[in-house]
Amino acid sequence: MSLLDVRNVDVFYGDAQALWGVSFQVEKGTITSIVGANGAGKTTIMKTISGLLIPKSGTITFEGRDITREEPHKRVEMGIAHVPEGRQLFPRLTVMENLRAAAYTRRAREKFQDTLEEVFNLFPILRERRNQLAGTLSGGEQQMLAIARGLILRPEILMLDEPSLGLAPKLVIMILNLVRKLKEEGYTILLVEQNVYQALKLSDKAYVLETGRIVKSGTGEELLRDEDVKRAYLGL
C-alpha cells in the first residue's frame, strides 16, 4: 500500500477545471517529483492533498484512510505537511513564534522541544534570528523558516512547493542537498522544483503534468533520459 494514493482527481476553480483525472502514488521513504510548466497544476495538486481545495471527483487516500473531504487541520494532525509556494510565513510573528504556530497540533506539540533542537541544528541561522520578525528575514532565511515550520509539524509526508524559488544558486544547492538529507533521515517527500534536472536526479519517482493531466511517469533516471522531457524541461 502506498503512503499516499491520489486517484482520478478532478479539481475546479469555479467553473475552470485545473486537474483532469490525476492519479499518482507516493511510497514511504521516497522522493517523488511532479514536473510541469507554469500553470500546469502542480500547486493545485498540493493544495488538494493538504485540503485547501476539495476535488469534484476522485479520491485521496493517506495511510489507507480516505481523506478526500477531510478538513486541512486534521490532515496535518495525520502527518501531511505542505510547505507552500512563496513561503507564506506569518510576517509579523518572530521566527520562534512562527515555529510555535506550527506546534499547534498534538502531534507536533508533544515533540516540539526535540524537533526545535533538530531544526535549529539544521538551520543554525534561525537559532540566531529566533527573535526577529519573519517578515524582515532575507529570502533564503525565509525559505529555511518555511521548511523548518514544515519539519516542526512532524510529518509523515513533506510536500515542498518550489522550495528554491528566487534563491541565489548557492542557496538552491543548499536546499536541494537538504532535501536529499531529509530523505536519508527517513522523510517521505513530494517535491515540485523548477530545477527539473536536479529534481529528477534526486527523485525515486516522478510524474510529468501538462495542463492538468499526468502525461508521463517513471523513475527520476528514466525521465532524465526521456526525449520529450529533455526537450520540454531540460532545454536539451
Binding site: 485540503g51 496535518v76 510565513l89 506569518f90 510576517p91 504556530a101 506550527a102 499547534y104
Partner: peptide, 24 residues
Amino acid sequence: TYTGVALRAVSQNRMAAYLMGINV
C-alpha cells in the same frame, strides 16, 4: 500561549494557518 500565537497567525495568513494544522 499556543492558542494566542495561533490566533495571531490566523490574522496574518489564513492559508498558512490551515497548513500549520491550526483549526481556523
